[in-house]
């Protein structure tokens, strides 16, 4: 109860701090919208040449593009999660200050990242998707259920994304400068989430594999839920898949965190 309340205060604070950067938000919206147009034209060319590519028709493919642009900031696929700050704190040694507070480090940063994602979903997601829907025929649902499932799926996707990036950040306890690992994980994220091309386009064993990796939780799964490609029991399975990855990766983060803190506490970092 105490932890939940504290997490809420941290999340609300994080939401508000991201909300203070209005110009950055506007710039981000413009970028996402511009990229949405470029990708939408590319996908139109692709799909007119090869209709039903990856099992999507053109309105679905275009919706995929704009969902991707709407989620790009919220899932921090290309970096920019709340834990970036933690990375700086580890490098400067400020993390010592965080350790003497009576709060769990992972829970603290998870709450901060959820607050950030909530702001970026609203601040940077809604406008690009609306613009896309006005400019192109998108296959978006008109009933509330798929939207609700979509929001649940996005939330789980944000948690999976955080859990992955938290593992990456913890490596800076050993590497001191984690920016190389972060850049690499960003590249992996862009490709394996489906941001570059929907993962359903990849055939064979490779396609099977990439759809089972955690990154698919961050775009492919939420998009399929909203496009109603996965509905009913299949949608439930999709959410379960995300939840499993979230738990597994958060668990791994806890283990690594324990080792990292022990290292700091014994060796002074």
């Amino acid at each position: 109860m105490h932890a939940a309340r504290l997490a809420l205060v941290v999340a609300v604070g994080s939401f508000r701090r991201y909300a203070t950067y209005r110009v950055a938000t506007v710039a981000g919206v413009v970028t996402n919208t511009a990229f949405g147009f470029i990708l939408a034209f590319t996908f139109t060319a692709l799909w007119s040449e090869r209709p039903r590519l990856g099992g999507y028709d053109l309105p679905q493919a275009l919706a995929f593009v704009w969902i991707g642009q709407a989620l790009l900031a919220a899932t921090a696929l290309m970096g920019g999660g709340a834990e970036n700050e933690l990375q700086g704190r580890i490098r400067s040694g400020d993390v010592a200050v965080d350790l003497y507070r009576p709060a769990d480090l992972q829970l603290w940063w998870l709450a901060a990242d959820l607050g950030r994602a909530a702001f970026q979903l609203l601040g940077r997601g809604v406008v690009p998707l609306a613009v896309g829907a006005l400019a192109f025929p998108l296959a978006l649902p008109t009933t509330p259920l798929p939207w609700l499932l979509f929001l649940t799926s996005v939330t789980l996707g944000v948690v999976v994304g955080f859990a992955l990036r938290y593992l990456v950040v913890l490596t800076s306890f050993w590497l001191l400068d984690g920016s190389g690992v972060s850049a690499m994980s960003g590249l992996l994220g862009v490709f394996f989430s489906g941001m570059l091309l929907p993962l359903t386009l990849f055939p064979g064993a490779f396609g099977e594999t990439v759809r089972l990796l955690p990154w698919s939780s961050m775009l492919q799964v939420p998009a399929d839920v909203l496009l109603e490609v996965r509905q009913g029991p299949d949608a439930a399975r999709a959410l379960g898949f995300q939840a499993l990855w979230a738990l597994a990766l958060l668990g791994a983060g806890r283990l690594l965190q324990r080792v990292a803190i022990r290292r700091v506490v014994v060796q002074g970092g």
Binding site: V9, V10, G13, R16, R17, D94, R101
Partner: peptide, 16 residues
């Protein structure tokens, strides 16, 4: 080193 929330008003850090 600071324990305060960098981008937020002082009051918010105290509430935390």
């Amino acid at each position: 080193r600071t324990t305060l929330w960098w981008d937020l008003p002082l009051r918010d850090s105290y509430a935390l």
